[in-house]
Computed example of a mutant assay.
Amino acid sequence: MTDILVPTLGESVSSATVARWLKKAGEAVAADEPLVELETDKVTVEVNAPSAGVLEAIAAAEGAEVAPGSVLGSIAAGGAAKPAAPQPAAAAPAVPHVETPRAVTGPVAVPG
């Protein structure tokens, strides 16, 4: 399990507010994929996933005030996610019917 931590926000910034989560608990995430937005009085910061896996838990709800270094949530390694809905198979491209030319036998009439 990997913790998602509040990054250092700047020299004079001591806290931030969790603005919104971009992923829900149980969803698969890729490494460096944006997970949550934090707002300070100066800037909005996206916090990216430190590793690939499944967003296992959210420790700081939207609207919560958080300090640098505190835990926002956790990511479980591997495929512990809820199974995703099966994707429909891509339809095979239509193959046009092409007749094979037949060999000509016998005399051929040529106009003219």
Rank of each mutant, 00 (worst) to 15 (best):
A64T: 13
V66S: 08
A103E: 13
A19C: 04
A109E: 09
L5F: 01
M1E: 10
L35W: 00
D3N: 10
A61E: 15
I58F: 00
G53L: 00
G53K: 05
A30H: 10
P50Y: 05
A109W: 09
S12N: 14
A77R: 13
A60Q: 08
V13Q: 06
A67H: 10
L72F: 00
D32M: 12
A67T: 13
A60V: 01
V108E: 12
T17I: 13
A64L: 05
E62D: 15
G106S: 10
A94I: 11
A81F: 06
V29Y: 01
E99D: 14
A19N: 11
A28I: 04
E11D: 15
T2E: 15
A80C: 04
L38C: 09
A57P: 07
P111L: 02
I75N: 07
V95P: 01
V47F: 00
P86D: 07
S14A: 11
K42A: 01
S12F: 08
A89C: 04
A92T: 13
E33D: 12
S15D: 15
A91F: 05
I4K: 06
I58E: 04
E62R: 04
P68N: 05
E27A: 14
K82L: 14
I75L: 02
P50S: 07
T105Q: 08
A77M: 08
A76T: 09
P7K: 01
A77I: 08
N48V: 14
V108L: 12
G78K: 06
E37S: 11
